[in-house]
Every structure is written in C-alpha cells, then in structure tokens.
Design a protein around this nucleic acid. Structure first.
Lengths: 186, 186
DNA sequence: TGAGTGTGTGACTGATCAGTCACTGATCTG
DNA sequence: CAGATCAGTGACTGATCAGTCACACACTCA
C-alpha cells in the first residue's frame, strides 16, 4: 500500500499491529477462511514479514484470541467498577451491560464463535479454555455471585452470541422475539 | 473402496447416504475444513458423483444442517411425549433431557457450532435461522412455557454447546465446575 | 437385442494459499 | 566509515481442493 515505509518500526510494535489486524480479519472470516495475506494487507506489510513476526497462522490466531479475552476482561472490570450498587446481582448486571456495549462492533464476539468452531486445533482449544476460565473466574470473584448466577451469566452470553451470528437482533417475528427478550444490544 | 458396486442405487437413496456422510464430516471438521472428497469417501462413492447429486459443497452443507435440525425436533418431540408430568416445566425439562441424550455423539451439536461460524454464507445463515426458529417455536408451543423459560431453555442449550466444544465436561477445576453445574451429559 | 436412460468414475484444471528464501536497504555501534 | 544487525520484501513452491468432462457400465423396455 504505502509505497515505501518512511520510517521502520520495531518488530514488537509491528507485532501489536499485526495482532490487531489478525483479530479483525479472523473475526470476519474465521480461522480457515482467513488468509495470512489479508491480515498482512490490513497491517500494511508483506505476507512474508508476517511469517517472520509469527511462526505461523495458528499462533497468530491464538495471539488474536488472547488479545480478545484480555479486552473482554478489561471491559468487565470497567463495568463492575461503575456498577450503581455493589451487590452481587448489581455487579453482574453491570458486567453484562459492559459486555453488551463492548461487542457492539462484533469483532470480539465473532472471534469467539470462530474459535469454538476451530477448537479441535489443540492450541486454539487451549487458548479458548484459558480465556473462558479467566472470564468465569473473574465474574465469580469480582461479583461474589452464586455459582448458579455466574453460570446463567455465561449461558446468556452464549445466547447473545447466537443472536448476533444469526442476525436476529432486529427480527420482530415471534420466535426471534422470544430469544431477544431483555437482551441488551446498543 | 468397494471394488465395483454390485448393485446400483437410485439417486435419491444415494442422496440420503451422502447427506448423512456430510453431516458426520462437516461436524468433525467444519464447513471450510471439510473436503467433498472426504464426504464422498465416507459415502463410498467418487467425489465426482457427489457433484452430480448436489450442485455444490454449500447446498450439501445446508442439506446436512436441515437434517440435523430435523433430528433435533424429532428428539424434542419424543422427549416431550415421555415427560412424567405434562406441565410446562415438566415438558421443557423432559425436552432438555432428550436433547442431552441426543447429542451424546456430538455430531448434531458440533454441526450447529460450525454452522454458526459459517453463518456469513447467506444460505447457511438462512438455514440456521430456519432451524432455530423451528426449535424455539416447537419448545414454546409444545410445552406452553413462558417466553422467559423458553429463552432460558435455548440459552442453556448454547452453554451446553460451549461446554462440549471446549471439552470441559469432565474438568473438575473450579471455573469449569461452575459452568457444568446441573448440566446433563450421558 | 438394441437403443435409451440413469448410475457412476478417472483424470483433469485452474485457483488458492501457507510457508520459504534469497535478497535489499535502513539503522546502530565502535 | 566499516561492518554488523535488524526491518522488510518479491518471487517462488508444493500442496490442496472445488468443480468439470468425457466416458463406461448397468438397467429397462419396446
């Protein structure tokens, strides 16, 4: 794209850019559906250099997924901090609202869905479990809610993913309305 | 495989076999990760003939997904019929148990997960919505439960999908135990 | 029996893509 | 300034795969 890089970056700075580009691209087209070339293009570097920064496509996906979960936990932290009432229910609700707000652009949500589909790849499955563990434990310890409530929190998060992937947020038909009940989406 | 087909099948019978093979293969490796050749091999025919029976890979996935939802609704029907008490809660619970039993082999569950990941493909997204609509409406009308209860039914189904794709059914760690609470899996 | 129809395949093609390699040019250090 | 190190790329390869096509073999029925 840019004819010549006027200034060279450090490899670490590039890696950050590439992870961000990878997050966007993988979220759009999934693990197998995304080419390293498309990530490189979004990051404004050559495909060859992507392979010099990361050992392969799979570690790149894992890095993007880890970044994704980091951003989610951050958002949950922020939400919890700004909860009106610091009761278990209040905090959990505020975290739900923060999550709903965070996934407005759908990148973080879609990447999780694609990761589930690619979980047979050992490293991806492991990264998914680590992220899920982080979120679950954080929700539990930060809110102090019961195990049942935390489970429900995650379950409705998954329902939210289904609603978005199927694109029925604004579907008014009877069945869609049942699933959309009380789900926040900005 | 078989050196020569001793007897020819009708195209319709072959189509049924191919759809079943496609269901298994797509469930294992997803939409993009599955080759038509692997489906053909499982169905014991040549890849070329698969393309004579179906116009392409995508319609084949859609057919498999439709078969998947048909089997699920059937199972829910069976479960509901055998409910101990025909109250909304009783019927919904029996349907949950039937679903848990049905997805023991994970093919139907994994195909749904992969379909979510491939929902950007218009025909696949549409098939996914149709199936979800069928299940939701059936759960609602057959059980007569409240919208909230039906929504919860679907949400916990999605949680169940997450548990299976991440493989934490038998994980005893604290966070996994929270998600596994009271989830039936045979 | 022979022509027509339906079942089924081997061998190909054209495109795509992860990953490699030899190389260029910029920056840093002594 | 020398030479070492680091950022970055173009051009390639080897493999894979959806889809095609010409053809072969099996049934059917007049």
């Amino acid at each position: 794209m840019t004819p010549r890089p006027s200034v060279l970056s450090t490899a670490d700075a590039r890696r950050t850019t590439v992870i961000s580009a990878a997050l966007s691209e993988f979220a759009l087209t999934g693990y197998l559906g995304t080419t390293v070339a498309s990530i490189a293009q979004r990051a404004d570097i050559s495909p060859a250099y992507v392979f010099k920064l990361f050992p392969g496509k799979e570690p790149l996906f894992v890095a993007a997924l880890e970044e994704c979960f980091e951003q989610i936990v951050e958002a949950l932290e922020g939400g919890a901090a700004s909860a009106d009432e610091q009761t278990p229910a209040g905090v959990l609700d505020a975290m739900g609202a923060a999550y709903a707000h965070l996934i407005a652009d759908r990148r973080l949500l879609m990447l999780q869905v694609h990761a589930q589909s690619a979980a047979e790849v050992p490293e991806i499955g492991a990264a998914l479990r680590r992220g899920l563990a982080k979120i679950t434990l954080f929700a539990k310890t930060r809110s102090g809610a019961s195990d049942d409530d935390v489970q429900r929190f995650i379950a409705f998060g998954q329902l939210c993913h289904l609603i978005v992937t199927t694109g029925i947020e604004d579907d008014g038909s009877a069945w869609a309305a049942i699933l959309n009940r009380g789900i926040r989406h900005p």
